[in-house]
Design a binder for these strands. Structure first.
Lengths: 230, 230
DNA sequence: CAGACATTTGGAACATGTTCCAATTTTCGA
DNA sequence: TCGAAAATTGGAACATGTTCCAAATGTCTG
């Protein structure tokens, strides 16, 4: 029944599975290129299929919906969590903002591309509506952030009485809200970085010890100054 | 050229304008009723038009797009800013959370309705993509929040060094992000209130004076306790 | 090698948002 | 009251996401 062996890392190696995998990535690449070249326009399933050299029904077999294809493009572009561990900053709070910078860089360096992606991901016509990331991806990312927050607690910069889990949720909600405004055009690309950083700093300072609060106060004022030049 | 006189409050009184106004509200009402009765299903322009007793093209003449119709439904339901001024709480911070409760109540009391509305508003297919509110509405609401924040500064609960305008933006982004998660199903309706309140409290505490921080700390722990029962 | 199986393929079909158009109705100004 | 202007109307049309189907293609198992 199960064609082909399954190797250690879960990748199937049968010829059938391999061909399927190749079709998958051809579709993802086609979608990515179309967005890169034409933005929103021509990002239709018929176009994607034509570009990928497959039939219109194939993306539906492999992904299920247009939204799922776009989500695959999104996650394909972001090897975010991988670089997450390599943050060098001295204290945990600075590492948090370095991580934030890391994440923001994608959007700032390629705004048109990611804006299109985001807008497409917001379309929740289908019943499933799997959020803005694959469950596994989401969990990995959340765990990484939680680790940073817990480190900050261990270093005595954040109050241990405030749940790192809930704090992570708050930061993530804040980021999503700002991205939403950005995708809709209410926040400019230049303001995106400082705006999210300010929100992070405020929320973190709300959970900070005296030592942490001092560090964050400086950052808040810096973000404010950046945003003042508008 | 301009048919009919224009009365003081901007409402036109000519027969033509009156008929148009009535068609407008018939369409909005039809859309509202359809959402109430069937949720997402059957919320098509053809259905709305049929229910409103107008032709399919009329909503496009009067509103421009389906999204604009839904936005009109949304704003029709929320006389939010009106009740905003009548908040009684002793200190400005409590008034902020009362206002927050006021706003949340809509969503919590009628989750299906508002979830559908939100999901429809997220669809930014058209080029215009006017955000989540009419510009005038948005500005009125922002001004009301700003006033509350400035009152808190005047009462010595929030630091005056932190811009009330930017703080308002942060709170609003946070609310939008949480609503987004809620609309997509990642946050339950029961958790919606405490989750947004927690985010507000954290961000406000990040901008608070010592006096304000103490008040907010208590609220943060209360929200946390509410969310722990999951 | 041959048959069983899994997938892809074309193609049609459906509902949808949106636009265009000519014909019609309704209102307004003189 | 009459003609001009401003809508609405009905209908068709288009592109889209999505689903369905029978036929074809390729792959695995015995």
């Amino acid at each position: 029944m199960n064609g082909g062996a399954i190797s250690a890392d879960g990748a199937e190696s049968g010829r059938r599975a391999q061909a399927k995998e190749e079709r998958r990535s051809r579709i993802v690449r086609a979608a990515r290129d179309l967005i890169r070249e034409t933005g929103d326009t021509d990002l239709s399933m018929r176009m994607i299929a034509k570009r990928a050299g497959v039939s219109l029904t194939t993306p539906y077999n492999l992904f299920g919906s247009k939204r799922a294809v776009v989500l695959a493009v999104f996650e394909d572009e972001r090897d975010f969590v991988v670089r997450f561990g390599r943050l060098q900053a001295a204290n945990a709070l600075d590492r948090i903002f370095d991580a934030h910078d890391l994440g923001m860089r994608y959007f700032i360096e390629d705004p048109d591309f990611y804006r299109t992606l985001w807008k497409a991901l917001l379309n929740t016509q289908g019943a499933d509506s799997t959020g803005l990331a694959t469950p596994e991806r989401l969990e990995r990312s959340r765990a990484a952030w939680r680790a940073l927050l817990e480190a900050a607690q261990d270093e005595g910069l954040l109050e241990p009485a405030i749940s790192a889990d809930l704090l992570e949720r708050s930061l993530s909600s804040f980021a999503n809200g700002t991205m939403l405004s950005w995708a809709m055009g209410a926040v400019s690309t230049e303001a995106l970085g400082p705006t999210t950083a300010l929100g992070y700093a405020l929320a973190l300072r709300g959970a900070a010890t005296a030592a942490g609060a001092a560090l964050l106060q400086a950052r808040i004022l810096r973000c404010q100054a950046q945003l003042a030049g508008d």
